[in-house]
Amino acid sequence: MASPQIILYTNPNCPWAQRAHIALKELGLPYEEVFIDVEKPREDWHLAINPKGQVPTLSYDGTIITESGIVAQFLADAHPVTETGTGTVSKAGLLLPLNSLDGAIQRARIAYFVDACVSKVYPVLVGIIMNGESHNTSTERLVDVIEKDIEPLLALTSDEGRERFFGGSESLTLAEVLVGPFLLWIFTLVKTEYGVLSGDLVSALQIRAPRFESWGARVVAHESVRHVLDEEWVGKSLKGRWEGAVAKRKSKVEE
């Protein structure tokens, strides 16, 4: 079977677009990349492909797929895992077999998990950056929401001492694809050269949300996830926004 012709209209620094990059890398699919400058008005040719002007947009043998979660889900469904002759699952996809009850259960659990991360953790993270929150406040807020809403959902990420991915998978699942870009933010912003998040965040997570801390570190170290990160750009860009918000808050207090 010939490889599909894939064109990805993207901005690699956008965390939503990074979802598509991670999925394509993990699936080993070749693709053409067309850069979209999200800081400028969209050109007519791009709006003809995606009227919303968003990234990512995927052209798959001429069929247009939009919205990051849908793009990643489509790629996983179009390239499902297969059973090998030994009864094990080959690393040819991101989900359990598509036509099985176990696969359906896994996809439901992944959907719930990703929704929890995007609706609970991501807003807190963005709020910290845009509001210039102090290290003490931001650490407490992040750890609280992760401990309450995310940690219980990661019960199967270890098995008899073996570290695994979501649901006990030995390879990446759609959960890591969809959440990975935001984990990259967290584990970048705690570094001392950026300092948006406190260095104490990791130790606090190790105590109160050890599954998340261990799982998150594995995810951001994985090549399929790691390759999308321009760490200097992310660190300096988000640090600049956070410092600007800190200065704005300080000026209001002094008025």
Rank of each mutant, 00 (worst) to 15 (best):
I22C: 00
I36N: 02
K248Y: 07
F113I: 02
A104V: 09
S68Y: 01
R208F: 04
Q5N: 12
P15Y: 06
A116T: 13
E43I: 12
P80W: 07
S90V: 07
H21V: 00
T63W: 01
G235T: 05
C117T: 13
F182A: 02
D115Y: 01
L172H: 10
V219Q: 05
K120R: 14
D230F: 04
Q5H: 12
L94Q: 05
D61I: 08
E140H: 11
I207D: 15
V253E: 15
G103C: 05
G85T: 11
P41V: 08
F74N: 07
L95C: 14
G62A: 01
F182D: 02
I49Q: 01
R249S: 14
T84Y: 10
A111Q: 13
K40H: 08
T86M: 10
Q18Y: 06
V179Y: 11
I36D: 02
T157Q: 01
D61C: 06
L27A: 07
L142A: 09
L27W: 05
I36Y: 03
E133T: 11
V225E: 08
L47K: 15
S100N: 04
L154Y: 13
T84M: 12
F35Q: 11
I105Q: 10
L98E: 15
E231F: 04
A72D: 00
F182G: 02
I49P: 01
A116Y: 01
N11R: 00
G195P: 06
D200C: 03
L197I: 05
A204D: 12
G69P: 03
K120I: 04
P80A: 09
P80R: 11
S100Q: 09
I70E: 12
A245S: 14
G85K: 11
F212A: 06
D44I: 07
A78D: 07
R226Q: 11
E160M: 09
P210Y: 04
L96F: 08
G199V: 06
P152I: 02
V179F: 14
T66H: 01
C14H: 09
D144S: 14
P12T: 02
A155E: 14
Q5F: 10
A78H: 04
S224I: 01
A245I: 12
E151S: 06
L96I: 04
D200L: 05
S203C: 07
P4D: 07
R226E: 11
T57Q: 00
I7E: 09
S3R: 10
G161P: 02
H21D: 02
G240A: 09
L178F: 08
V228W: 00
K91D: 14
I128N: 14
G199S: 12
N50A: 04
V38Y: 05
E26I: 08
E140N: 13
H222W: 06
K248L: 10
R211Y: 02
F212N: 08
V177C: 10
G240R: 10
Q73T: 06
L184E: 10
E39P: 01
